[in-house]
Each structure stands twice: as C-alpha cells, then as structure tokens.
C-alpha cells in the first residue's frame, strides 16, 4: 500500500494505492489520525487505486470518522471501486460515510 497526500481546491486528499489489509492498515491509521489531529473540516480519500480492503481497513476509517465527528469534520470517499463498494453496502457503511463518484461531486457542499 502507498499513501500520498495531495490537495484539491485547498482540501487535503489522501490517495491510497494498493491493498488495505492487516499488514498495511496500521500505517494508514497512523497517517489518518495524524491528519485528523489537526482538525481539517473535510478530508477526502481517493479510492481509485485501492485494490482490496479488509475489516481492519474498514475499522480504521470508522475510527477516523469517529475522530472527526466531535468537531463536525467530514470524511469523504471518492471513486470507490465496485467490489469495495459492495462490502460497504453489505455493512451499510454507505449510509455512514459520504461516498462520491468523483472529486467534483465530492466538492459540492
């Protein structure tokens, strides 16, 4: 897994490439919580190049969302591949996370 931080319209975008699993999710958790500690109003996660996510990855993002909720921060997921969207749907996490098809969609208030 590779994590890159980019910006889009002055917002932070976390671009993840590869597999989010038990061996890589601790790194993702550390980076995510470090960013959330600075209380960004919105964090975008670009899933375009994510090939796999397991329950540890899901738990990492739930923890991240819970860290943002107290101050009103928003965690937005962008371009989730169908097989990953399927898991989010089964777990009803598509009702919890803000999921968008593109950055343009995600940037709309």
């Amino acid at each position: 897994m590779k994590i890159e931080l980019t910006s889009h319209s002055s917002h932070i975008v976390i671009v993840i490439t590869g597999e989010i699993d038990m061996s890589s999710s601790p790194e993702l958790r550390a980076r995510l919580l470090e960013l959330i500690h600075k209380k960004p109003p919105v964090l975008f996660v670009d899933f375009t190049s994510v090939s796999y996510i397991d329950s540890s990855g899901i738990a990492t993002f739930v923890e991240g969302l819970k860290g943002m909720m107290p101050y009103g921060g928003r965690l937005k997921f962008v371009s989730i591949p169908p097989k990953i969207a399927e898991i989010f749907g089964f777990a009803k996490l598509d009702k919890v996370f803000e999921i968008h098809g593109s950055m343009d969609d995600a940037l709309r208030p």
């Binding site: 397991d54 329950s55 899901i58 738990a59 739930v62 923890e63 969302l65 819970k66 898991i87 089964f90 777990a91 919890v96």
Partner: peptide, 12 residues
C-alpha cells in the same frame, strides 16, 4: 455506543 470499530470480520 455509537459507530462500532470492530465486528466486521465474521460478518464479511
């Protein structure tokens, strides 16, 4: 208890 951070594995 709010959003759960675990319990997804067996369900998957």
């Amino acid at each position: 208890d709010g959003l759960p951070e675990g319990g997804f594995g067996l369900a998957i």
